[in-house]
Design a protein around this nucleic acid. Structure first.
Length: 485
RNA sequence: GCUCGUAUAGUGUAGUGGCCCAUCAUGAAGGACUCUCAUUCCUUCGACCCGGGUUCAAAUCCCGGUACGAGCACCA
Protein backbone atom coordinates (compact mmCIF):
# COMPACT_ATOMS: atom_id res chain seq x y z
CA UNK A 1 0.00 0.00 0.00
CA UNK A 2 1.29 3.39 -0.97
CA UNK A 3 1.16 6.14 1.49
CA UNK A 4 -1.71 8.44 0.63
CA UNK A 5 -1.09 12.01 -0.33
CA UNK A 6 -1.88 14.64 2.20
CA UNK A 7 -5.61 15.15 2.09
CA UNK A 8 -6.64 18.25 0.30
CA UNK A 9 -9.58 20.30 1.30
CA UNK A 10 -12.52 19.55 -0.91
CA UNK A 11 -13.78 22.63 -2.63
CA UNK A 12 -17.25 23.14 -4.01
CA UNK A 13 -20.09 20.69 -3.74
CA UNK A 14 -19.62 17.05 -2.75
CA UNK A 15 -19.40 14.49 -5.51
CA UNK A 16 -22.68 13.30 -6.95
CA UNK A 17 -23.02 9.56 -6.41
CA UNK A 18 -23.68 7.32 -9.36
CA UNK A 19 -23.49 10.15 -11.84
CA UNK A 20 -22.47 9.99 -15.44
CA UNK A 21 -21.31 13.03 -17.33
CA UNK A 22 -24.00 14.26 -19.69
CA UNK A 23 -26.67 11.96 -18.31
CA UNK A 24 -27.63 13.66 -15.10
CA UNK A 25 -31.17 15.00 -14.78
CA UNK A 26 -32.07 17.12 -11.79
CA UNK A 27 -35.11 19.14 -10.90
CA UNK A 28 -36.23 21.99 -8.78
CA UNK A 29 -39.94 21.88 -8.03
CA UNK A 30 -41.48 24.89 -6.32
CA UNK A 31 -45.13 25.56 -5.72
CA UNK A 32 -45.93 28.63 -7.81
CA UNK A 33 -48.02 30.13 -5.02
CA UNK A 34 -45.68 33.10 -5.00
CA UNK A 35 -42.39 34.24 -6.45
CA UNK A 36 -39.16 32.64 -5.29
CA UNK A 37 -37.75 33.28 -1.86
CA UNK A 38 -34.30 33.08 -0.34
CA UNK A 39 -34.89 29.45 0.66
CA UNK A 40 -35.88 28.44 -2.86
CA UNK A 41 -32.56 29.79 -4.02
CA UNK A 42 -30.83 26.88 -2.35
CA UNK A 43 -32.77 24.39 -4.45
CA UNK A 44 -32.02 26.26 -7.63
CA UNK A 45 -28.36 26.86 -6.89
CA UNK A 46 -27.50 23.36 -5.69
CA UNK A 47 -29.43 21.49 -8.37
CA UNK A 48 -28.37 23.99 -11.00
CA UNK A 49 -24.69 23.78 -10.12
CA UNK A 50 -24.76 19.99 -10.26
CA UNK A 51 -26.50 20.11 -13.63
CA UNK A 52 -23.78 22.41 -14.91
CA UNK A 53 -20.94 20.42 -13.37
CA UNK A 54 -22.18 17.14 -14.82
CA UNK A 55 -23.29 18.62 -18.14
CA UNK A 56 -26.77 17.43 -17.40
CA UNK A 57 -30.19 18.97 -17.35
CA UNK A 58 -32.12 20.99 -14.84
CA UNK A 59 -35.89 20.76 -14.90
CA UNK A 60 -37.94 23.56 -13.43
CA UNK A 61 -41.19 21.98 -12.36
CA UNK A 62 -44.27 23.74 -11.10
CA UNK A 63 -45.90 21.61 -8.45
CA UNK A 64 -49.24 23.35 -8.73
CA UNK A 65 -51.60 20.60 -7.65
CA UNK A 66 -53.37 22.39 -4.83
CA UNK A 67 -56.05 24.95 -5.60
CA UNK A 68 -57.46 25.39 -2.11
CA UNK A 69 -54.74 25.47 0.57
CA UNK A 70 -51.90 26.93 -1.49
CA UNK A 71 -53.48 28.22 -4.67
CA UNK A 72 -51.00 29.10 -7.43
CA UNK A 73 -50.34 32.73 -8.27
CA UNK A 74 -50.69 33.25 -12.03
CA UNK A 75 -47.85 35.75 -12.23
CA UNK A 76 -45.46 33.26 -10.63
CA UNK A 77 -45.50 31.05 -13.75
CA UNK A 78 -43.72 33.83 -15.57
CA UNK A 79 -41.69 35.31 -12.73
CA UNK A 80 -40.17 32.09 -11.41
CA UNK A 81 -38.43 31.09 -14.66
CA UNK A 82 -37.02 34.60 -14.97
CA UNK A 83 -35.73 34.59 -11.42
CA UNK A 84 -34.31 31.11 -11.81
CA UNK A 85 -32.45 32.13 -14.96
CA UNK A 86 -31.09 35.21 -13.22
CA UNK A 87 -29.84 33.17 -10.32
CA UNK A 88 -28.43 30.31 -12.38
CA UNK A 89 -26.87 32.32 -15.14
CA UNK A 90 -28.61 30.00 -17.60
CA UNK A 91 -32.15 29.05 -18.54
CA UNK A 92 -33.46 25.81 -17.04
CA UNK A 93 -33.36 23.12 -19.69
CA UNK A 94 -36.96 22.01 -19.31
CA UNK A 95 -40.07 23.43 -17.74
CA UNK A 96 -42.79 21.06 -16.58
CA UNK A 97 -46.13 22.14 -15.19
CA UNK A 98 -47.81 19.49 -13.07
CA UNK A 99 -51.30 20.75 -13.86
CA UNK A 100 -50.61 19.97 -17.53
CA UNK A 101 -49.78 16.39 -16.64
CA UNK A 102 -52.99 15.29 -14.93
CA UNK A 103 -53.87 12.69 -17.60
CA UNK A 104 -50.54 10.98 -16.94
CA UNK A 105 -51.23 10.89 -13.23
CA UNK A 106 -54.70 9.48 -13.85
CA UNK A 107 -53.24 6.82 -16.08
CA UNK A 108 -50.84 5.71 -13.37
CA UNK A 109 -53.53 5.87 -10.72
CA UNK A 110 -55.65 3.54 -12.80
CA UNK A 111 -52.79 1.13 -13.30
CA UNK A 112 -52.32 1.17 -9.55
CA UNK A 113 -55.97 0.31 -8.97
CA UNK A 114 -56.08 -2.33 -11.69
CA UNK A 115 -52.90 -4.01 -10.49
CA UNK A 116 -54.12 -3.98 -6.92
CA UNK A 117 -51.44 -1.89 -5.25
CA UNK A 118 -53.76 1.01 -4.72
CA UNK A 119 -57.33 1.38 -3.56
CA UNK A 120 -60.07 3.93 -3.23
CA UNK A 121 -60.57 4.68 0.44
CA UNK A 122 -63.82 6.17 1.62
CA UNK A 123 -62.82 6.65 5.23
CA UNK A 124 -62.52 10.19 6.54
CA UNK A 125 -59.14 11.50 7.52
CA UNK A 126 -59.97 11.08 11.19
CA UNK A 127 -61.18 7.52 10.69
CA UNK A 128 -58.09 6.55 8.81
CA UNK A 129 -55.86 8.09 11.41
CA UNK A 130 -57.18 5.50 13.88
CA UNK A 131 -56.23 2.67 11.51
CA UNK A 132 -52.83 4.19 10.98
CA UNK A 133 -52.15 4.49 14.68
CA UNK A 134 -53.54 1.04 15.48
CA UNK A 135 -51.76 -0.61 12.54
CA UNK A 136 -55.05 -2.04 11.34
CA UNK A 137 -56.42 -2.18 7.83
CA UNK A 138 -59.29 0.01 6.78
CA UNK A 139 -62.45 -1.68 5.40
CA UNK A 140 -61.80 -0.32 1.92
CA UNK A 141 -58.45 -2.02 1.61
CA UNK A 142 -59.61 -5.49 0.49
CA UNK A 143 -61.87 -4.16 -2.29
CA UNK A 144 -61.13 -5.74 -5.65
CA UNK A 145 -59.95 -3.96 -8.77
CA UNK A 146 -63.39 -3.78 -10.38
CA UNK A 147 -64.93 -2.11 -7.35
CA UNK A 148 -61.97 0.24 -7.09
CA UNK A 149 -62.34 1.24 -10.73
CA UNK A 150 -66.03 1.85 -10.17
CA UNK A 151 -65.34 4.04 -7.12
CA UNK A 152 -62.58 5.80 -9.08
CA UNK A 153 -65.05 6.74 -11.79
CA UNK A 154 -67.36 8.14 -9.11
CA UNK A 155 -64.48 10.34 -7.97
CA UNK A 156 -63.85 11.49 -11.52
CA UNK A 157 -67.46 12.18 -12.44
CA UNK A 158 -68.27 14.02 -9.24
CA UNK A 159 -70.63 11.50 -7.72
CA UNK A 160 -68.27 11.71 -4.77
CA UNK A 161 -67.48 15.07 -3.25
CA UNK A 162 -64.18 16.28 -1.82
CA UNK A 163 -63.58 14.40 1.41
CA UNK A 164 -65.67 11.40 0.36
CA UNK A 165 -62.86 9.39 -1.12
CA UNK A 166 -59.13 9.30 -1.73
CA UNK A 167 -56.86 6.91 -3.58
CA UNK A 168 -54.29 5.26 -1.35
CA UNK A 169 -51.12 3.38 -2.13
CA UNK A 170 -51.17 -0.05 -0.55
CA UNK A 171 -47.99 -0.39 1.48
CA UNK A 172 -48.25 -2.21 4.81
CA UNK A 173 -50.21 -1.05 7.82
CA UNK A 174 -47.69 -2.65 10.17
CA UNK A 175 -44.75 -0.62 8.86
CA UNK A 176 -42.66 0.78 11.68
CA UNK A 177 -42.85 4.30 10.36
CA UNK A 178 -46.45 5.52 10.66
CA UNK A 179 -45.91 8.06 7.89
CA UNK A 180 -45.60 5.27 5.32
CA UNK A 181 -48.75 3.30 6.08
CA UNK A 182 -51.10 3.28 3.07
CA UNK A 183 -50.39 6.85 2.22
CA UNK A 184 -52.79 8.99 0.19
CA UNK A 185 -51.96 9.49 -3.48
CA UNK A 186 -54.87 11.43 -4.96
CA UNK A 187 -57.75 13.38 -3.50
CA UNK A 188 -60.68 15.48 -4.69
CA UNK A 189 -60.77 19.25 -4.69
CA UNK A 190 -63.71 21.60 -5.07
CA UNK A 191 -62.50 23.18 -8.28
CA UNK A 192 -65.93 24.64 -8.97
CA UNK A 193 -65.51 27.02 -6.06
CA UNK A 194 -61.73 26.92 -6.13
CA UNK A 195 -60.79 26.74 -9.80
CA UNK A 196 -57.17 26.34 -10.74
CA UNK A 197 -55.93 29.83 -11.63
CA UNK A 198 -54.54 28.70 -14.95
CA UNK A 199 -57.36 29.34 -17.42
CA UNK A 200 -56.66 26.21 -19.43
CA UNK A 201 -57.10 24.10 -16.29
CA UNK A 202 -59.73 25.98 -14.29
CA UNK A 203 -62.40 23.56 -13.10
CA UNK A 204 -61.44 20.82 -15.55
CA UNK A 205 -60.41 18.26 -12.91
CA UNK A 206 -61.98 17.20 -9.63
CA UNK A 207 -59.35 14.64 -8.73
CA UNK A 208 -55.84 15.87 -8.07
CA UNK A 209 -52.65 14.02 -7.14
CA UNK A 210 -50.90 14.81 -3.88
CA UNK A 211 -47.23 15.72 -3.79
CA UNK A 212 -45.79 12.28 -3.13
CA UNK A 213 -47.66 10.67 -5.99
CA UNK A 214 -47.36 13.50 -8.48
CA UNK A 215 -43.69 14.02 -7.78
CA UNK A 216 -42.86 10.33 -7.92
CA UNK A 217 -44.63 9.75 -11.22
CA UNK A 218 -43.27 12.92 -12.76
CA UNK A 219 -39.69 12.13 -11.78
CA UNK A 220 -40.07 8.82 -13.56
CA UNK A 221 -41.67 10.41 -16.64
CA UNK A 222 -38.89 12.97 -16.90
CA UNK A 223 -36.07 10.52 -16.24
CA UNK A 224 -34.79 12.32 -13.17
CA UNK A 225 -31.56 10.72 -11.97
CA UNK A 226 -30.83 12.69 -8.81
CA UNK A 227 -33.15 14.34 -6.31
CA UNK A 228 -31.61 16.88 -3.99
CA UNK A 229 -34.02 18.47 -1.54
CA UNK A 230 -34.68 19.35 2.07
CA UNK A 231 -34.52 16.57 4.62
CA UNK A 232 -38.08 17.34 5.64
CA UNK A 233 -38.90 15.25 2.58
CA UNK A 234 -37.02 12.16 3.72
CA UNK A 235 -40.22 10.31 4.50
CA UNK A 236 -41.47 11.45 1.14
CA UNK A 237 -38.59 9.56 -0.42
CA UNK A 238 -39.48 6.48 1.59
CA UNK A 239 -43.12 6.66 0.49
CA UNK A 240 -42.12 7.17 -3.11
CA UNK A 241 -39.69 4.26 -3.03
CA UNK A 242 -42.56 1.99 -2.02
CA UNK A 243 -44.54 3.25 -4.98
CA UNK A 244 -41.57 2.77 -7.31
CA UNK A 245 -41.31 -0.84 -6.13
CA UNK A 246 -44.97 -1.40 -7.05
CA UNK A 247 -44.39 0.04 -10.51
CA UNK A 248 -41.08 -1.75 -10.91
CA UNK A 249 -39.13 1.47 -11.33
CA UNK A 250 -35.74 2.42 -9.91
CA UNK A 251 -35.71 5.38 -7.60
CA UNK A 252 -33.27 8.24 -8.30
CA UNK A 253 -30.27 8.94 -6.08
CA UNK A 254 -31.15 11.31 -3.28
CA UNK A 255 -29.37 13.93 -1.20
CA UNK A 256 -30.77 16.20 1.46
CA UNK A 257 -30.00 19.49 3.09
CA UNK A 258 -31.06 20.59 6.55
CA UNK A 259 -33.15 23.51 7.64
CA UNK A 260 -31.74 26.99 7.31
CA UNK A 261 -32.80 29.85 9.48
CA UNK A 262 -31.60 33.36 8.85
CA UNK A 263 -31.15 35.09 12.14
CA UNK A 264 -32.55 38.42 10.94
CA UNK A 265 -35.61 36.91 9.28
CA UNK A 266 -36.71 34.02 11.46
CA UNK A 267 -39.52 31.93 10.05
CA UNK A 268 -41.59 32.94 7.07
CA UNK A 269 -43.77 31.24 4.52
CA UNK A 270 -44.84 32.13 1.03
CA UNK A 271 -48.49 31.85 2.04
CA UNK A 272 -48.03 34.23 4.96
CA UNK A 273 -46.10 36.73 2.87
CA UNK A 274 -48.86 36.63 0.31
CA UNK A 275 -51.48 37.42 2.94
CA UNK A 276 -49.37 40.21 4.41
CA UNK A 277 -48.78 41.79 1.03
CA UNK A 278 -52.47 41.61 0.20
CA UNK A 279 -53.23 43.15 3.59
CA UNK A 280 -50.92 46.05 2.76
CA UNK A 281 -48.29 45.26 5.36
CA UNK A 282 -45.67 45.24 2.63
CA UNK A 283 -45.40 47.21 -0.58
CA UNK A 284 -45.06 44.11 -2.73
CA UNK A 285 -43.03 40.96 -3.21
CA UNK A 286 -39.90 43.05 -3.62
CA UNK A 287 -40.38 44.98 -0.39
CA UNK A 288 -36.82 45.17 0.98
CA UNK A 289 -37.93 43.74 4.31
CA UNK A 290 -38.97 40.46 2.68
CA UNK A 291 -36.74 37.46 2.10
CA UNK A 292 -37.77 37.09 -1.52
CA UNK A 293 -35.37 36.83 -4.41
CA UNK A 294 -36.87 39.93 -5.99
CA UNK A 295 -36.33 41.93 -2.79
CA UNK A 296 -32.75 40.77 -2.49
CA UNK A 297 -32.11 41.57 -6.13
CA UNK A 298 -33.62 45.01 -5.66
CA UNK A 299 -31.37 45.54 -2.67
CA UNK A 300 -28.41 44.81 -4.86
CA UNK A 301 -27.52 41.28 -3.87
CA UNK A 302 -25.94 39.67 -6.91
CA UNK A 303 -26.73 36.24 -8.28
CA UNK A 304 -23.05 35.38 -7.92
CA UNK A 305 -23.11 36.23 -4.23
CA UNK A 306 -26.22 34.14 -3.67
CA UNK A 307 -24.67 31.22 -5.52
CA UNK A 308 -21.40 31.46 -3.59
CA UNK A 309 -23.35 31.63 -0.36
CA UNK A 310 -25.38 28.48 -0.98
CA UNK A 311 -22.46 26.54 -2.37
CA UNK A 312 -20.49 27.37 0.74
CA UNK A 313 -23.26 25.94 2.93
CA UNK A 314 -23.20 22.81 0.80
CA UNK A 315 -25.63 19.94 1.22
CA UNK A 316 -25.16 18.91 4.82
CA UNK A 317 -28.16 17.61 6.74
CA UNK A 318 -27.41 19.85 9.66
CA UNK A 319 -29.99 22.41 10.71
CA UNK A 320 -28.24 25.74 10.71
CA UNK A 321 -28.79 29.36 11.55
CA UNK A 322 -26.82 31.88 9.56
CA UNK A 323 -26.49 35.63 9.89
CA UNK A 324 -27.23 37.78 6.88
CA UNK A 325 -23.70 39.12 7.12
CA UNK A 326 -22.53 35.82 5.64
CA UNK A 327 -24.40 36.65 2.45
CA UNK A 328 -23.33 40.28 2.58
CA UNK A 329 -19.63 39.47 2.78
CA UNK A 330 -19.97 37.51 -0.46
CA UNK A 331 -21.80 40.43 -2.00
CA UNK A 332 -19.20 42.97 -0.94
CA UNK A 333 -16.57 40.94 -2.78
CA UNK A 334 -18.76 40.97 -5.88
CA UNK A 335 -19.60 44.65 -6.00
CA UNK A 336 -16.83 46.66 -4.34
CA UNK A 337 -14.54 46.91 -7.35
CA UNK A 338 -17.29 48.38 -9.49
CA UNK A 339 -19.08 50.55 -6.94
CA UNK A 340 -18.48 54.27 -7.44
CA UNK A 341 -18.02 56.20 -4.22
CA UNK A 342 -20.61 58.77 -3.33
CA UNK A 343 -21.02 61.12 -0.41
CA UNK A 344 -24.29 61.02 1.47
CA UNK A 345 -24.74 63.35 4.44
CA UNK A 346 -27.29 62.21 6.99
CA UNK A 347 -28.66 64.93 9.27
CA UNK A 348 -26.76 67.50 7.22
CA UNK A 349 -25.42 70.57 8.91
CA UNK A 350 -24.34 73.55 6.83
CA UNK A 351 -21.05 75.35 7.38
CA UNK A 352 -19.43 78.22 5.56
CA UNK A 353 -15.89 77.48 4.53
CA UNK A 354 -13.53 80.31 5.50
CA UNK A 355 -9.82 80.88 5.06
CA UNK A 356 -7.61 80.00 2.15
CA UNK A 357 -8.65 77.02 0.14
CA UNK A 358 -8.80 75.94 -3.48
CA UNK A 359 -11.89 76.88 -5.42
CA UNK A 360 -12.45 73.28 -6.36
CA UNK A 361 -11.16 69.81 -5.63
CA UNK A 362 -11.25 66.49 -7.41
CA UNK A 363 -11.34 63.09 -5.74
CA UNK A 364 -11.35 59.58 -7.18
CA UNK A 365 -14.60 57.92 -8.06
CA UNK A 366 -12.97 54.71 -6.72
CA UNK A 367 -9.78 54.86 -4.65
CA UNK A 368 -8.44 51.58 -6.06
CA UNK A 369 -9.38 52.33 -9.65
CA UNK A 370 -8.36 55.84 -10.75
CA UNK A 371 -9.49 54.94 -14.27
CA UNK A 372 -13.07 55.27 -13.08
CA UNK A 373 -12.56 59.04 -13.08
CA UNK A 374 -12.83 61.99 -10.76
CA UNK A 375 -15.52 63.67 -8.73
CA UNK A 376 -15.48 67.47 -8.79
CA UNK A 377 -16.44 69.61 -5.81
CA UNK A 378 -16.68 73.34 -6.48
CA UNK A 379 -16.24 75.78 -3.64
CA UNK A 380 -16.50 79.26 -5.13
CA UNK A 381 -19.80 79.31 -3.27
CA UNK A 382 -18.21 78.09 -0.06
CA UNK A 383 -21.00 76.29 1.77
CA UNK A 384 -20.46 72.69 2.76
CA UNK A 385 -22.47 69.92 4.41
CA UNK A 386 -21.24 67.78 7.26
CA UNK A 387 -23.08 65.07 9.19
CA UNK A 388 -24.38 66.36 12.53
CA UNK A 389 -22.68 63.47 14.25
CA UNK A 390 -19.31 64.57 12.85
CA UNK A 391 -19.92 68.27 13.38
CA UNK A 392 -19.64 67.95 17.15
CA UNK A 393 -16.07 66.73 16.84
CA UNK A 394 -14.68 70.24 16.31
CA UNK A 395 -11.47 69.70 14.36
CA UNK A 396 -11.92 67.61 11.26
CA UNK A 397 -10.21 66.53 8.09
CA UNK A 398 -12.59 66.92 5.15
CA UNK A 399 -11.79 63.77 3.23
CA UNK A 400 -9.57 64.45 0.26
CA UNK A 401 -9.61 68.18 0.85
CA UNK A 402 -8.51 70.23 3.88
CA UNK A 403 -8.19 70.35 7.67
CA UNK A 404 -10.85 72.54 9.27
CA UNK A 405 -11.83 73.80 12.68
CA UNK A 406 -15.55 74.19 13.20
CA UNK A 407 -17.35 77.05 14.89
CA UNK A 408 -21.11 77.40 15.08
CA UNK A 409 -21.49 78.33 11.43
CA UNK A 410 -18.10 78.23 9.86
CA UNK A 411 -15.45 75.73 8.99
CA UNK A 412 -12.13 77.50 9.08
CA UNK A 413 -9.51 76.01 6.84
CA UNK A 414 -6.36 75.42 8.84
CA UNK A 415 -4.32 73.49 6.35
CA UNK A 416 -4.52 72.05 2.88
CA UNK A 417 -2.20 69.22 3.77
CA UNK A 418 -3.12 66.81 6.48
CA UNK A 419 -1.41 68.04 9.65
CA UNK A 420 -2.52 65.73 12.43
CA UNK A 421 -4.63 62.71 13.29
CA UNK A 422 -7.96 64.52 13.48
CA UNK A 423 -10.91 62.42 12.28
CA UNK A 424 -11.44 62.16 8.54
CA UNK A 425 -15.06 62.75 7.60
CA UNK A 426 -16.98 62.76 4.36
CA UNK A 427 -18.52 66.04 3.34
CA UNK A 428 -20.24 67.72 0.46
CA UNK A 429 -20.05 71.06 -1.34
CA UNK A 430 -23.42 72.75 -1.49
CA UNK A 431 -23.19 73.21 -5.23
CA UNK A 432 -22.71 69.49 -5.91
CA UNK A 433 -25.34 68.34 -3.47
CA UNK A 434 -28.98 67.52 -3.80
CA UNK A 435 -31.61 66.60 -1.23
CA UNK A 436 -31.91 62.83 -1.18
CA UNK A 437 -33.32 59.86 0.66
CA UNK A 438 -31.59 56.75 1.91
CA UNK A 439 -33.99 53.87 2.47
CA UNK A 440 -32.86 51.30 5.00
CA UNK A 441 -34.67 48.05 5.78
CA UNK A 442 -33.64 46.76 9.17
CA UNK A 443 -35.26 44.68 11.90
CA UNK A 444 -38.38 44.33 9.80
CA UNK A 445 -38.83 48.06 9.47
CA UNK A 446 -38.25 50.62 6.78
CA UNK A 447 -36.33 53.70 7.78
CA UNK A 448 -35.84 56.70 5.57
CA UNK A 449 -32.90 58.99 6.13
CA UNK A 450 -33.33 62.35 4.48
CA UNK A 451 -30.11 64.14 3.76
CA UNK A 452 -27.87 65.68 1.15
CA UNK A 453 -26.33 63.48 -1.47
CA UNK A 454 -23.62 64.09 -4.00
CA UNK A 455 -25.29 64.72 -7.34
CA UNK A 456 -24.74 61.91 -9.79
CA UNK A 457 -25.98 60.57 -13.09
CA UNK A 458 -25.71 56.86 -12.39
CA UNK A 459 -28.62 54.92 -13.83
CA UNK A 460 -31.16 53.04 -11.75
CA UNK A 461 -29.69 49.78 -10.53
CA UNK A 462 -26.11 51.00 -10.10
CA UNK A 463 -24.46 49.74 -6.95
CA UNK A 464 -22.68 52.57 -5.18
CA UNK A 465 -20.74 52.86 -1.97
CA UNK A 466 -21.79 55.70 0.28
CA UNK A 467 -18.58 56.69 1.97
CA UNK A 468 -18.42 55.64 5.61
CA UNK A 469 -21.98 54.26 5.43
CA UNK A 470 -22.08 51.26 3.16
CA UNK A 471 -23.31 49.91 -0.15
CA UNK A 472 -26.58 50.82 -1.74
CA UNK A 473 -28.46 50.58 -4.98
CA UNK A 474 -29.53 53.59 -7.00
CA UNK A 475 -33.33 53.70 -7.29
CA UNK A 476 -33.40 57.12 -8.92
CA UNK A 477 -31.22 60.24 -8.93
CA UNK A 478 -32.19 61.19 -5.40
CA UNK A 479 -32.97 57.84 -3.78
CA UNK A 480 -30.66 55.08 -2.61
CA UNK A 481 -31.83 51.74 -1.26
CA UNK A 482 -29.36 50.64 1.39
CA UNK A 483 -27.90 47.22 0.76
CA UNK A 484 -25.43 46.45 3.53
CA UNK A 485 -22.37 47.88 5.16
C1' G B 1 -46.73 8.88 21.44
C1' C B 2 -44.48 6.44 17.00
C1' U B 3 -40.82 7.17 13.15
C1' C B 4 -36.72 9.52 10.83
C1' G B 5 -32.45 12.70 10.84
C1' U B 6 -28.34 15.78 12.69
C1' A B 7 -24.43 16.99 16.39
C1' U B 8 -16.32 19.85 14.49
C1' A B 9 -14.02 27.20 16.79
C1' G B 10 -19.14 32.87 17.77
C1' U B 11 -21.20 31.40 12.66
C1' G B 12 -20.76 28.16 8.41
C1' U B 13 -17.66 24.29 6.54
C1' A B 14 -13.41 20.24 5.27
C1' G B 15 -12.43 15.65 7.24
C1' U B 16 -15.41 8.36 5.86
C1' G B 17 -9.79 4.54 11.20
C1' G B 18 -3.35 6.43 11.43
C1' C B 19 -1.25 12.26 7.40
C1' C B 20 -5.69 15.86 12.53
C1' C B 21 -2.12 18.80 19.24
C1' A B 22 -7.98 19.08 12.94
C1' U B 23 -9.14 22.55 6.87
C1' C B 24 -11.01 26.85 4.73
C1' A B 25 -14.19 30.96 5.04
C1' U B 26 -16.59 34.32 7.98
C1' G B 27 -16.27 36.82 12.75
C1' A B 28 -13.48 39.18 16.64
C1' A B 29 -8.75 41.50 18.12
C1' G B 30 -4.17 43.73 16.47
C1' G B 31 -1.19 45.52 12.41
C1' A B 32 0.24 47.19 7.12
C1' C B 33 -1.78 50.03 3.08
C1' U B 34 -5.29 53.86 2.32
C1' C B 35 -7.06 61.37 3.16
C1' U B 36 -13.92 56.13 4.00
C1' C B 37 -15.93 52.74 9.71
C1' A B 38 -14.64 50.42 2.31
C1' U B 39 -11.31 47.22 -0.49
C1' U B 40 -6.57 44.50 -0.26
C1' C B 41 -2.71 42.18 2.68
C1' C B 42 -0.42 40.16 7.38
C1' U B 43 -0.78 38.24 12.52
C1' U B 44 -3.56 36.35 16.52
C1' C B 45 -7.93 34.10 18.89
C1' G B 46 -11.07 30.05 18.82
C1' A B 47 -13.95 23.56 17.96
C1' C B 48 -14.33 17.36 17.33
C1' C B 49 -22.10 17.24 22.47
C1' C B 50 -21.58 13.60 26.86
C1' G B 51 -20.60 8.45 28.50
C1' G B 52 -19.24 3.62 27.31
C1' G B 53 -17.34 0.02 23.65
C1' U B 54 -14.43 -2.01 19.23
C1' U B 55 -9.15 -1.24 17.71
C1' C B 56 -2.17 -1.18 18.26
C1' A B 57 -4.81 3.48 16.63
C1' A B 58 -11.49 6.97 16.60
C1' A B 59 -13.54 13.59 15.00
C1' U B 60 -14.11 9.27 11.82
C1' C B 61 -17.02 2.56 13.46
C1' C B 62 -20.80 0.51 17.36
C1' C B 63 -24.14 1.19 21.70
C1' G B 64 -26.50 4.42 25.24
C1' G B 65 -27.62 9.39 26.80
C1' U B 66 -28.53 14.50 25.82
C1' A B 67 -29.79 18.51 22.60
C1' C B 68 -31.88 20.30 18.28
C1' G B 69 -34.85 19.51 13.78
C1' A B 70 -38.39 16.97 10.73
C1' G B 71 -42.47 13.44 9.27
C1' C B 72 -46.99 10.81 10.98
C1' A B 73 -52.21 16.62 6.20
C1' C B 74 -57.80 14.71 1.53
C1' C B 75 -50.40 21.30 1.88
C1' A B 76 -45.97 21.60 -1.02
Amino acid sequence: MEKREKKERRIGLPELTNAEKGKVVLRFAPNPNGPLSFGHARGIVINGEYAKEWEGELILRFDDTDTVVKPPLPHAYQQIPEEAAWLLGYTPHRIVIASDQIPHYYHHAEQMLKDGFGYVCRCSGEEFKVFRVDKTECPCRPNDADLNMDLWSKMLDGTFKPGDAVVRVKTDMTLKNPALRDWPALRMQDTANHPHPRKSIGSKYRVWPLLDFQSAVEDQLQGVTHIIRGKDLMDSTRKQKLLYEHFGWTYPETMYWGRVKVHEWGGFSTSQMRRDIEAGLFTGWDDPRLPTLSALKRRGITADALRAFWIELGVTQKDISVPLSALFSHNTKQIDDDAPRLSFIRSPQKFKLTGNHPQSVEVDVHPNHPKMGQRLFELNQPNIWIEAEDAVKGDLRLKGFVDVSLTAETADVQSIERQDQRPIVHWLSEKQSTPATLIVARDGEIMEFVGQMEAHTYPEGTMVQLERIGYGRVLDSTTILFSHS
